[in-house]
Amino acid sequence: MRIDETHRVWLVASIVILGAATAVYVIYALAAPHGPSGGSPIGLVFGFTGFGFMIYAGLLGARKKVPIMRLGRAQGWMRGHLWLGLLALPLILFHGGFHFGGLLTSILLWLLIITVLSGVFGAILQHYLPTVILERVPMETIYDEIDRVRDQLRVEAEGFVADLCGGGVPEAEAMALVPEGGIRAGGFTAMRPRGGGGVQYGLTEAEVEPVRSFFQTEMLPFLLEPSAKSSRLGDDTRAVAAFTKLRMLAPAAAHPVIANLENLCEEERQLTRQARLHKMLHTWLLVHIPLSLALLLLSVFHAVIALRY
């Protein structure tokens, strides 16, 4: 979620809550003869409030499971998750008097710190990465569609090369890329225009050989395994150099085809970039969510044990 001026109310409210809590804590810490304690009434208030914020933050996951239930707009829940989840850390620190305590409480506090930090890290990613994707992946597609679009790119490239050098793409293979239920069913990706198709260039074998060779030895392996570090086509600058060199070797009539191949490589790189950024945007959740669950469960356990005994 992008943190911008629309968060002003939450920011002010959080500062007020934090300020108030800090003031209470300072007064309480100075006045307590044995120092602040989690078991004291004020310590318990901090503990319950912090736990309540954690519960609220944790409920976002449950809220997402019922997206159409009218329980308040999801963005409101998300803002609450961000700010109250963040506030939970100082409140719990006030609750424990900045002491880690025993094993369980130490684990709990570390879990909370890591969870909050991972959440802050995720919020930073979510603040910046969408803009990065917007700017660096203009040919963005649906993440789950990337493999299929890659297949389309490969078939398209083979079509261009076949038109120039002879041979062709098996029809069955091309048709296999049409989504089930027809072109429309896949939405915009399925309607993506495809190139290639029966243009005759009238070049000799010798003239088209550099293109054929380049395609077979460099481009096709790159299209099949775009994340391979060894391919120079995976790098913007080196790819430009590679295609510039290819243009010098091939006759002018082949240059439009080379331009098309270069565009396909650019799209392939963008897909790779998109996949990488998408993973960055979501992988932190693999840490944040399990730790949050563990934190909540252990917090309940801690509360029961502490209050019971």
């Binding site: 992008r2 629309t6 997206p67 707009r73 999801a74 963005q75 998300m78």
Partner: peptide, 10 residues
């Protein structure tokens, strides 16, 4: 619309 309502990121 549910799609708008359910978007957590505005």
């Amino acid at each position: 619309p549910s799609c708008v309502y359910a978007c957590p990121h505005d």
